[in-house]
Amino acid sequence: MVVAGGVECATTPARLPGGTAGLRNAELLARYYGIDRGAADEFAVASHRKAARAWRQGAFGAEVVPVGVGGGSAAHQIRRDEGVRDDLSTHTLAGLRPLLADGVVTIGNMSSHRLGASACLVVAEDRLTELGLTPMAFLAGWAAAGCDSEGPALGAAPAVAKLLGRTGCSLDEIDLLEINEGYAVEVLALATEWELDPLGRLNVNGSDIALGHPVGATGLRIMTTMLHELGRTGGRFGLEAIALGHDHGIAALFESAEQAEPVELPRGARFHGSRTRRLGKHRA
C-alpha cells in the first residue's frame, strides 16, 4: 500500500509549458494540422465552460479539499479553482496578442501555472479485502515514450500508442480521455490525429487551460477527475496522457472497479503481448 502524491509550490514558474521549444512546437503543430487562431480560442473557451459547469453541478466536490490561507482576521479558505472563467468568450480571447508574430498561441489558449497538490492511495489487489477498502479503479497498464523531435511532435502520442499496443485496447473502447492542455493546438492536433471530436469524451470537465497546470500535481489531478467521472457515468475504461515535453510523454489506462467481473487473464499476460479486449484487473 503506497501513498503517491505531488505538489507544486514554485512562485516563479516558467512562463511557457515546455519552454520556448514547447511554444515553437505548438506553432508547428498549428501549421501542420491547419489549426487556426479561432479553433484554438474556441477550444480554450470550451475548457472554461466545461470546468465552470462541473463546478456548478458539484462534480469536483468529492475530490477537492479546502486550503486555508493567511491568518488572523485575513484568514480564509480557497474552496475552488480560481482560474475558471464562466464568462469567457472567443471575442474576449480574440483581443489577445499572439506570443509569436503571426502565431496562434496566446496566453488565453494555453495552460496557466497554478499552485496545488494531489494524492492517491495505491493498494495491491490482494490487500483490499484485508484492509476493508473499495477501489475506484484498477490500473490496466501504463507506458512512457518519446519520438524524433525534428519537425512538429505530439508529446503524448507515442506513449498512448505504446500503451494501446501493450494492452490490446483501442481508442474506440475508451470511455473517457484526459489529456493535459499545455496548448490548445496540441490537444486539437491529437484529436485530429486520433479522429476524435474534441468536444466529446475528451476532457469532459475541462482541464489545464481552465483549471490550471500545477506541474508536480497535474498527473494525479487529471487522473482523479477522470476516475470520479468514470464512476459517475458508469464507463469502463479511462485513459490519461501527459506530454512531459513536446517530444515525449506518459500515459496510463484504468478500468473502473464498478464494472462486472471480467474473465481473468493469466498473471502478467497484459504486459507480454496479450491482444485481448478484456483487460480485467491489474496484477502487479
Results as ranks from 00 to 15, higher is better:
Gly103Cys: 09
Ala159Pro: 00
Val2Asp: 06
Phe60Cys: 04
Thr11Glu: 10
Leu230Pro: 02
Thr129Cys: 05
Ala30Cys: 05
Trp55Tyr: 08
Thr90Ser: 13
Gly182Ala: 15
Ala59Cys: 10
Gly103Leu: 00
Asn180Val: 13
Gly268Phe: 14
Arg232Leu: 14
Gly72Gln: 12
Arg232Ala: 14
Tyr33Phe: 14
Gly280Lys: 00
Leu230Gln: 05
Val215Cys: 09
Ala75His: 10
Ala161Gln: 04
Met110Thr: 12
Tyr183Ile: 08
Thr11Ile: 14
Asp102Leu: 10
Ile35Met: 08
Ala74Trp: 09
Asn180Lys: 06
Val64Ala: 05
Glu258Met: 03
Ser170Gly: 04
Trp55His: 08
Asn109Val: 10
Arg277Glu: 11
Pro158Asp: 08
Val67Thr: 13
Val105Ser: 12
Gly83Tyr: 03
Gly5Trp: 08
Gly234Gln: 02
Gly71Ile: 02
Ala217Thr: 08
Met226Ala: 12
Gly235Asp: 04
Phe254Asp: 02
Ala184Met: 07
Ala284Ile: 07
Ala137Ser: 03
Ala30Ser: 13
Val7Ala: 12
Leu163Asp: 02
Pro135Glu: 10
Ala159Arg: 01
Thr11Phe: 09
Gly68Tyr: 03
Ala94Ile: 06
Gln77Trp: 04
Ala143Asp: 09
Gly219Gln: 08
Asp87Cys: 08
Cys9His: 01
Met1Ala: 15
Val160Ile: 15
His113Met: 09
Pro262Val: 13
Ala269Tyr: 05
Val45Trp: 01
Ala117Trp: 03
Leu244Val: 14
His213Ala: 12
Val122Pro: 01
Gly268Met: 10
Gly58Ile: 01
Cys120Gln: 11
Gly22Met: 04
Arg24Trp: 02
Gly72Phe: 14
Gly116Asn: 12
Tyr32Asn: 06
Ile174Arg: 01
Ala14Tyr: 13
Gly6Lys: 05
Glu173Leu: 05
Asp102Cys: 04
Asn109Gly: 11
Val123Gln: 04
Thr276Pro: 00
Ile250Thr: 11
Ala14Lys: 07
Cys120Tyr: 01
Glu193Val: 02
Gly182Pro: 00
Asp247Gln: 10
Gly70Met: 08
Pro66Ile: 14
Gly132Phe: 05
Thr167Pro: 00
Asp148Met: 04
Leu244Phe: 02
Pro152Ala: 15
Gly151Trp: 07
Leu220Ile: 15
Leu99Phe: 07
Glu82Tyr: 06
Arg24Phe: 02
Gly6Ser: 13
Asp81Cys: 10
Ala39Met: 11
Ala40Leu: 13
Ser118Pro: 00
Arg97Pro: 04
Leu16Phe: 11
Gly235Val: 03
Ser149Gly: 11
Arg283Asn: 08
Met136Phe: 07
Glu178Asp: 09
Arg79Asn: 10
Gln77Glu: 15
Glu186Ala: 15
Ala145His: 05
